[in-house]
Design a protein around this nucleic acid. Structure first.
Lengths: 337, 337
DNA sequence: TACGCCGCGGAACCCGCTTTCCCTGAACGC
DNA sequence: GCGTTCAGGGAAAGCGGGTTCCGCGGCGTA
């Protein structure tokens, strides 16, 4: 229980605390080798471990990075988190994991929590789904944090002029829609997320405009808004398959929803892709595990996490950052027809 | 950039710092209502946020909990992490996420890193896979941490007399094997993990002893040791399907491996479960997404995370803790034969 | 009226460490 | 041989808050 402090070490080594401090963590000042040895020996003999909090306070900066995700159990976020974790470790940072569970107010609370912790940077993975007021509150909290010297990076949509890692959802979505048209699909339906969800909305919009441009507009009754979950996908499929004219393909805005759609198709006694084709988005690992393997848009999630971390660690904040592009991956769930 | 401190607030409110401190965070001492109001008003006017590091130092305790997992991208761990995160949030703690990537030495480093941070508790999710020396080193680091007042909890196998949340891998594995026998399976093969992996080894041992007890011993050439990954499962399936006598069922020690086994079966031009049945373990979400849905042993992963956190937060460390039991879930991957 | 107690502000010290600033002694240059 | 750097040790001042302890005024009780 006896916490051994630097003063103890210094005393044991017969030097001043200043010298002990300089010996334990190399400062820009040098310490005579024999003294340094004595100090290090004393430190390890006493089992000294520096107190990171005290160091943080004395130095005026911490080594922790706050990561904010919706839900760490969601493979989409856990893969990004893996990238963040890896990059943070390489930078010698420890990451503080927090979950919003999709609650915009919680998001603001978390930011101020991390602010209190004096985290050196905050990485927001996962798009906001609040209204404008929520956005304003979040922006205010983040700006306050930045004002105190904190770094911020977020992914997807921009918020204020905060450093953002752009992801070209639109391009990927349009390309995917185009690929399906090329494969011979004509009657489309969309398992969309909640309209409030920015990312989902962007994907839906891109799909619809691409298809419209190709002369295949998707009527509103073929776009069902449900949660971005398996359950949501299942429900969406049920609704879409109950339409008078069965869609040839159901495009889900995320892979997780697509997995749900697959379930919904089975529920309806139909087969994928023979009766209905399916597509997802993100290319999380599950996408290639299910049968049929999902045609989707691959997003380099782990890399996004890494780049996000790097972005947060750039002092001034880089703006001219190349956006992340998705890559269409055609698998069994959308055979040519 | 101007950090506003408690002293600033006190000055603005025209009171002493002691009073400001007492007003901002209710101490056991009372502050006259009008003064408290003045202080709070000044605090919010100035945008004061307490410095968690300074508080931690002054109070001598932090509010952070260290979580150690192998790989946060692995759904097994990310689900446990979700449980930990939830429980930690309820306890007002923030979680520091760290990954070992399966490196026993890294594990020790992480423990001392979290020790430095003066995390109030460390939760080790995921079994060790080092040798005895590694275990000893880890134990030493954890004991040192405990000596300094830190709390520890780990899951699975015990280490020293550290508080451990026991998981009855053996019972679940044996029950699963028994269920398969009851379903009519006789020729078993096992996609085992690396022998060094304690949990995997325990499951394999339990399966083998249960089957032996039922007069169906599994010969060594029907037990293939590969990595606990999809790829490992795929490789194991390839090896097992190349045997002269094709197994009726391949039991993988984790769901992830089972998914790989499914892929391996397809690679071999066979069908599951018609040609070869498959089982997994853990019941991560993917287990019910794949086709055929996997027969497996359900482990309440999220709950494990929660209980682990609770265990770490019990001051003395509770030992008489009910072990977590798995529940056999029979799905399409193992039809009766 | 006098004494004691209680409620409550405030000065000061402490948490553990970094860092400035001062000071000493040795090496160096002319 | 003497002045001058300069390396490097040490005292002490913070970093931002918590908390002890002292002291003061108001109240209740003989």
């Amino acid at each position: 229980m006896a916490r051994v402090t630097l003063a103890d070490v210094a005393h044991a080594a017969g030097v001043s605390q200043a010298t002990a401090s300089r010996a334990v963590n190399g400062s820009n000042r040098t310490v005579r080798p024999d003294l340094r040895e004595r100090v290090l020996a004393a430190a390890s003999a006493l089992g000294y471990t520096p107190d990171a909090n005290a160091q943080a306070m004395a130095r005026g900066r911490t080594t922790s990075l706050g990561l904010v995700v919706h839900d760490i159990a969601d493979p989409f976020f856990s893969t990004i988190a893996a990238g963040v974790s890896q990059a943070a470790e390489e930078a010698g940072l420890i990451v503080s994991l927090t979950e919003t569970q999709g609650d915009p107010r919680r998001e603001v609370e978390i930011v101020s929590l991390l602010d209190r912790q004096r985290a050196m940077a905050i990485v927001l993975a996962g798009t906001r789904l609040g209204d404008d007021a929520d956005d304003a509150a979040l922006l205010a909290a983040l700006e306050a944090y930045r004002g105190r010297g904190g770094q911020v990076a977020l992914v997807g949509q921009r918020l204020g002029d905060l450093p953002v890692l752009a992801v070209d959802h639109r391009g990927g979505a349009a390309e995917l829609a185009g690929a399906l048209v090329d494969l011979g699909y004509r009657r489309f339906a969309i398992a969309a997320g909640r309209p409030r969800h920015r990312t989902a909305a962007a994907r839906v919009a891109a799909i619809r405009s691409e298809l419209a441009a190709r002369g295949l507009p998707v009527p509103d009754d073929r776009v069902v808004h449900t949660d971005l979950t398996r359950t949501g996908g299942r429900a969406a499929a049920a609704a879409l398959l109950a339409l008078a004219e069965r869609p040839e393909v159901i495009m889900a805005v995320t892979d997780l929803m697509a997995v749900g759609v697959l379930g919904g198709i089975r529920d309806a006694g139909l087969r994928a892709p023979e009766d209905v084709a399916v597509t997802g988005f993100d290319d999380i690992e599950i996408a290639s595990d299910v049968t049929p393997a999902l045609t989707t848009v691959r997003l380099p999630l782990r890399e996004i996490g890494q780049r996000l971390t790097a972005l947060a660690l750039i002092p001034g904040g880089a703006d001219a950052l190349e956006p992340v592009r998705g890559e269409v991956v055609v698998r069994e769930s959308t055979p040519a027809r």
